[in-house]
Amino acid sequence: MTLLIVDTLTKTYATADGPFPVLRGVSLTLEAGESLALTGESGSGKSTLLHLIGGLDRADAGRIMLDGQDIARLDDAGRAALRRGTVGVVFQQFNLIPSLKIADNIAFQARLAGRHDAAWCATLADRMGLTDHLRKYPEQLSGGQQQRVAIARTLAARPKLVLADEPTGNLDETTAATVMDLMLALVAETGAGLLMVTHSLVLAARLQRRLHLRAGQVA
């Protein structure tokens, strides 16, 4: 079954130098459980595409059919519900909530989505090697550990689609490799689709399919 259909999506940003077209008619599809790497130069539009699919921003034109629903034109509340329940985003900056303990951070999105499952959270923490850190705060963890928390937080809510934006961009190579292994394994186990933005061809090679963007179009 096709999880995601992106159809001639366009997005233009206003800049100081006038309108700048970031996406110029991008189309792609993703099957359920499939993983896809989006690569491209800085400014090629890959992060923007990810944000549009994740409901973090609105497209100017085109369609995004996610799980049978056109989300390109959803209003604020609709997009918030999408982010809560259907997709999960793993950010480069981790974006943990600094004032919550690790255990609460992991459970947070699941709680927002109303499908908190303590056993599943414990499993994720265990798989991510975070069991000893559950009572700590994010600032007490290393970057790699923080990103594992972010991934666990995303998966705890059992999203149908995981969106990852340079998830290991802030990590050193060894750590990045460990984190990536864990993420790919767990995403595969949960059966979620994965769309990952990366500039690393090595990382991209580990996903089932790759798509290269150039100047806002699929190359």
Binding site: V89, N95, L112
Partner: peptide
């Protein structure tokens, strides 16, 4: 500010 953005990114509706 940062927390507010994270909360929204994780799906908390703006008006809520």
């Amino acid at each position: 500010r940062g927390m507010v953005r994270t909360l929204r990114a994780l799906g908390l509706p703006l008006n809520r």
